[in-house]
């Protein structure tokens, strides 16, 4: 075939340098397709042009590039067999152009999916942790409420007992023939401490009610006294509850058989005679 001087002198160098337009390249391709000698000359020229790459100064890449690349290779070599050789026919340009970017995009999508799923798992874990914290808080609140309920139940029992005592006291007051006298603080040290003694003439017994008395330690006790003809006679010992209240029954307390009633603080087990400066409540009975 006749040598085309224009193509070989004007287009061949830029073909070798990859600097032709599509139309120009097509023209050269068509020319060498039917001219093997021209194709050989072009190949030699391309080899010369390829050497231009060595003009570049080597630049060591950062280790990250290799790390990422080898990670991709490791994943790929485990997941896929070796690809088949590319067919001789020229692939569709757009597909080739974006082929590697497509792979990169696929890889990036896979990584993104892992990141998103990992993020979702982290989010769920975070939510679980939050719910567990909330549950622990609720359980603590429930335990507190249960403890408070127990306290209230105890307090309610105490109030029920006090109410029952008041009702008993009221019943005693209202009983036919009952006589009630009030006991008061004679020391001035316990102004809130009060008491009543209700006499039951039908059986010659009496009921002593006290409230707001000071709490005593285990070495002490309260002792009731009926004073007849100036002589104190023990009417028994008793202790008060946490509120300082107590109900103490007294036998042999016929009306007119004593002229006063008193309460003193004595050593545990009681005394034969009231300690003079430890009498805190006292009431006189007048006929």
């Amino acid at each position: 075939m006749k040598r085309d001087q224009r193509i070989e002198e004007e287009l061949f160098p830029f073909y070798a340098l990859h600097a032709l337009t599509d139309e120009e390249r097509a023209e050269v391709d068509a020319y060498i397709a039917v001219n093997p000698e021209a194709a050989a000359r072009l190949a030699a020229l391309a080899q010369d042009a390829a050497g231009l790459a060595l003009m570049a100064t080597p630049i060591p890449p950062s280790p990250t590039v290799k790390a990422v690349l080898m990670a991709r290779v490791a994943t790929d070599s485990r997941a896929a067999p070796a690809p088949l050789p590319r067919p001789a026919a020229r692939p569709e340009p757009a597909r080739r152009r974006w082929g590697s970017w497509g792979l990169a995009a696929g890889f990036a999508a896979a990584v993104l999916a892992l990141i998103i799923s990992g993020g979702a798992i982290l989010n769920i874990n975070r939510q679980n942790a939050g719910l567990e914290t909330a549950i622990a808080g609720l359980e603590s609140t429930i335990a507190g409420l249960q403890a408070e309920m127990g306290t209230l139940r105890t307090r309610n029992d105490e109030l029920q007992d006090q109410l029952q005592a008041r009702e008993d006291q009221l019943a005693a007051y209202l009983a036919p023939g009952a006589i009630t006298v009030a006991l008061g603080d004679i020391t001035g040290l316990h102004p809130d401490s009060v008491g009543t003694l209700t006499l039951h003439p039908d059986d010659d017994t009496a009921t002593l009610h006290v409230s707001n008395l000071p709490a005593l330690d285990e070495t002490q006790t309260y002792q009731a006294w009926l004073i007849a003809d100036g002589t104190p006679v023990s009417a028994g010992t008793f202790n008060v509850d946490a509120s300082g209240a107590a109900i103490h029954a007294i036998g042999d307390a016929a009306p007119g058989s004593f002229e006063a009633v008193g309460i003193s603080i004595e050593p545990a087990g009681g005394s034969d005679q009231p300690t003079p400066d430890r009498i805190i409540l006292l009431a006189g009975l007048t006929s």
């Binding site: 004007e10 830029f14 340098l17 990859h18 600097a19 032709l20 337009t21 042009a49 231009l52």
Partner: peptide, 11 residues
């Protein structure tokens, strides 16, 4: 040569 090879310019 450089403009063609390293800059990708056409002739």
């Amino acid at each position: 040569l450089e403009l063609a090879y390293f800059k990708g310019l056409t002739r």
